[in-house]
């Protein structure tokens, strides 16, 4: 993202909209700190600049990955989908991606409000891979891994910064305690935050085993949750 300096009048209306505080006013003109900017384009999309000074510039690899992961309207080249990841469990009644006896995890690095580098993403990915986790082969982040069996990422992207990266996949339910323990450990080694999703196919009797295990192990579970209600069917 760049600000056309001829069009900018330095009104500073755009400054609070930047999610990474990358916009500052210098010599009565708004400028963008390229290191902080994650190429989300919020500054342009909110249309706060009356002079239309914001312009999306051509990005080269690896910087282009910032836009892919941070600009919601940008489609992932790997999946053709907007957003951050896959449909995860949202269509599971059809796809059967997650089954009973399995635990699905979504590790949403950088969210909320902190952003992440791919270096931290790789740290978590390597821990998960070493603990018996299988990454979802349809997830954009799995598709860019150099080796999904170990969770490694292309070295040239490690310093790139984005709003959020989701690591998605699953493991047999019995691996859940070791995965949670590993996540606890690695969460102390990263310079960001992650939000943690636990996916479970409900049992016939209405129980949700993975959440029962998490609670038994002392992990707090938030009161809000989401569920598919089984209305999807093949066309």
């Amino acid at each position: 993202m760049i600000i056309n300096q001829e069009k900018c009048h330095g009104c500073a209306l755009c400054v609070p909209y930047c999610v990474t505080n990358a916009i500052t006013i210098v010599n009565k003109k708004a400028i963008i700190d390229r290191e902080l900017c994650v190429e989300c384009s919020v500054c342009m999309q909110v249309d706060v600049c009356k002079n239309h000074a914001f312009e999306e510039d051509e990005l080269e690899w690896p910087r282009s990955i910032r836009r892919t992961y941070s600009n919601v309207m940008s489609k992932h080249p790997q999946t053709g989908m907007t957003g951050r990841g896959t449909p995860e469990m949202k269509t599971n009644e059809l796809t059967g991606k997650y089954k009973r006896g399995e635990v699905g995890l979504g590790v949403e690095l950088g969210r909320p409000d902190v952003c992440t580098t791919f270096r931290d993403v790789e740290k978590v990915a390597k821990m998960l891979a070493a603990s018996g986790f299988t990454f979802d082969h349809e997830a954009p982040t799995t598709m860019i891994m150099t080796d999904p069996t170990v969770g490694s990422l292309p070295p040239e992207i490690l310093n790139e910064r984005v709003i959020c990266v989701i690591l998605e996949g699953k493991a047999p339910t019995e691996k859940l305690p070791v995965l949670l323990e590993g996540l606890k450990k690695v969460s102390k080694e990263i310079d960001t935050v992650f939000s943690l999703d636990v996916i479970t196919v409900e049992e016939e009797d209405g129980s949700v085993p993975n959440i029962e295990i998490a609670r038994r192990l002392g992990y707090p579970v938030r009161p809000n949750a989401k569920t598919t209600v089984g209305l999807g069917r093949p066309a």
Partner: peptide, 13 residues
Amino acid sequence: PHTWNHSLGIWGK
């Protein structure tokens, strides 16, 4: 309900 997604909150820094 078919498949649930629960939040285990925010971890890390």
